[in-house]
């Protein structure tokens, strides 16, 4: 593409045009482009390290495609990884990525990040509310996330944290609970019965009804009433 063709789209003085034409051929231009790529890769690798490890050699070509799709970036970490997660989910939904572990690993890291970045002003420690009189209106505690896995999560995440691919971990129905109610996030496996209910509560807009199982979770403070559930609205979760 000729410089004239590119530059005529902008209102530039003769000196500005001469400068750009001379600058674009300098080796520093290529270094600047590489630094731009590093700066856009940094949020992904910092906040989605296991997802990046799982993508392995596919990460760079996917990253380049992502940058073409989302040219405008503010380079803030949280919005950038949300955009990248959306990009990966679209490709998984349309069958362009078929990695069996990707969705659950991405869910897990996004849940971790949601808790790290969210604003929780107004959440009082250990507060447990009663549900409404008709027994409906139970929600997942705003500082708790539950993630469903189709493969043994501990084996999967352990392999990825060692930069290895998961080596056929046991398949089944697994849940990890990420608990942000304490000073540091706690990650613990959840019983499948509890996991299903917590997942349902997380997805429900009206809240779930009370039952023998949900009553246990209510007592543990993992399920809460609507008032406490809404305290992080306007946050970033």
């Amino acid at each position: 593409m000729s410089p004239k063709f590119v530059l005529e789209r902008y209102e530039l003085t003769d000196r500005e045009q001469r400068r750009l034409i001379r600058v674009v051929w300098q080796r520093g231009m290529s270094v600047s482009c590489t630094l731009y790529r590093i700066n856009r890769m940094t949020p992904l690798y910092t906040l989605l390290p296991l997802t990046c490890n799982l993508l392995g050699e596919e990460l760079v070509p996917l990253g380049e495609l992502f940058w073409v799709t989302f040219r405008d970036s503010d380079l803030q970490f949280k919005p950038e990884i949300d955009r990248f997660a959306r990009f990966l989910r679209d490709r998984m939904d349309s069958g362009l990525i078929q990695d069996p572990y990707l969705r659950e690993v991405l869910d897990f890291e996004q849940a971790l990040n949601a808790l790290s970045f969210a604003a929780f002003q107004g959440v009082s420690d250990g507060a447990v509310e009663l549900p409404e009189e008709n027994g409906h209106g139970l929600f997942l505690h705003p500082q708790v996330r539950v993630v469903a896995f189709r493969h043994d999560p501990l084996a999967t995440l352990d392999a990825l944290s060692r930069r290895s691919k998961p080596s056929e971990p046991i398949e089944g129905e697994f849940f990890l609970l990420i608990d942000g109610r304490t000073e540091r996030l706690e990650i613990v496996p959840a019983d499948a019965r509890f996991g299903r209910i917590l997942l349902e509560a997380a997805a429900s807009k009206a809240g779930i009804s009370i039952s023998e199982t949900s009553a246990v979770l209510l007592e543990l403070g993992l399920l809460v009433g609507p008032q406490l559930a809404s305290v992080n609205e306007g946050g970033l979760s």
Partner: peptide, 8 residues
Amino acid sequence: VYFVDIPE
């Protein structure tokens, strides 16, 4: 830091 020399 600058990686290119701006002429003129």
